[in-house]
Design a binder for these strands. Sequence first.
DNA 1: GCCGTTTTCGGCCCGACTGTTTTCAGTCG
Length: 572
Amino acid sequence: MAFEDNQQLTRIFEEIADFLELQGENIFKVKAYQKAARGLEGLERSVCELYSSGQLASMPGFGKALVEKVGQFVDTGQVELHQQLKASFPSEILQLMDVPGLGAKKAALLHRELGIGSVDDLEKALKEGLVTDLKGFGKKTVDKLLEGIGLLRQGEQRWLLGRVSQLAEDLLSRLRALPEVERAEAAGSLRRGKETVGDLDLLVISSRPEVVMEFFASLGEVIGRGPTKCSIRWEGKFQIDLRCVPGESFGAAMQYFTGSMDHNVALRGRAKRLSCELNEYGLFDALGNNLASRSEEEIYERLGLPWIPPELRETGAELEWERLPERLQLEQLNGNLHTHSLWSDGTDTLEQLAEEAQRRGYRYLAITDHSRSMVVANGLSIERLMAQGQQIERLNASFSNGFRLLWGSEVDILGDGSLDFPEEVLARLDFVVVAVHSQFSMTPEAMTERICRGISHPYVDVLAHPTGRKINRRTGYQADWERVYAVASEHGVALEINCSPRRLDLNDKAARRARDCGCMISLGTDAHSLAEFDYLPLGVLQARRAGIEVGSLLNGLSWEQLRKRRARLVDV
DNA sequence: GCCGTTTTCGGCCCGACTGTTTTCAGTCG
């Protein structure tokens, strides 16, 4: 399938970049392969398809040489240069550069002088003192590399957005409590709303950085510490960087440390073409005069750009967009369209859920407990579903403020594509999400048929967690997603962005593609408890990253509009 | 290897911190 090809080629380009760097090749050539790899990663089209249709050359970073290498991959499944490079190095050498503190230069030196070709070789050489004659390998370096090998073997992954959000809020409130701290904010990939975060970047305005550094260093194991910058390891695993800047460069620092790297490179390139220089202290003209630095807005403005929201700062291409999407706001959502109650595997009663939803200002809440096949999740029989409907009806009669519970269900798409409740039952409900919960390892062709059949039934509103992936845990099932989007669009079925931090499914790029294929998007927390209502903002972030505006969101509709849409009475 | 509102050649983001350096290279983000 398309995604596997993209992933394979991404890996190949990354490895070519690493090999070239080891060889001491021109660093910009290395960067060209790295950039191409990033471009392919998560591309929502098949790279082979793009190549065959001649569209690849218009992708930024793909010039003549790289397009030709994609061609080799399409024809043979391999890239010649990659094969040559692989043959000229030990098979495990690239893992050396995964050791924190060890870059290409030192790895190449180790290989050239001592024949070290793997992390195991390195560990042995370090312990036996074989490296001490090499230039640049003092005692501290040896200790640091041994520690780095330990960290690498822990195999720590990027942390989930939800987890890092909470950690950041906690740390920021502690920093803000210091009298020496004027302002503290999170930057980096957390601010951009990436689904996982590799390290946390915090930014502080203070006229007394030494006090802030002292406090911060006490929070974890110190990796590095200077007058204005300190890095610690949180719980022995997760890196947190703190930078202290003066108030007048706060905007420039936020811009710089929010990234992404590609966005910053593009922005600095633009500054350079305007004979300016942009760094984390500000935007300066050729004479060194400060043109803008206090706020991000003025920096973008001086560069002739609108302020670009952090969630869209990814590839750098966003600088050239004719129009930025209208930034989705949490307040534009009228409700949450995927929740579970005590009736199946949730922890709260319908009354509690309704109360919490109203407290949060929702106009409606869809109760979507599991259908009967989900025995492990206490799925509802038809009889229990009907009884639940009666209770919901009574509750709705008791609300005087126009709030409404939607009587819904999360209905299993069974192995053959049929649904877990008969049509006459589905017809009675207010809202139906369908989902795959079993037999994940079907062939892509069979899975595509199954899902397409599932969403072709009448009375289906949403395909929930469409790919079934769980971040850092499982990749999700394979299917022809272009086909799924087409069928969903044809039948007016929305695709969900499941807001659970463990899922975020669809992801940002897939959601953008689904929207471009004509699908509506639905945000649902899949909450099994009241606290999980907090997941909705995570879904909003992903929707923003996908450039989705409120007009493409089911949650932007009133419940009356949802009902009419369900009855296919109006075309929304 | 890519790219072009100074350019088809000569640029390519740039600064903090570390360790071993005796003035700076390597790593990182």
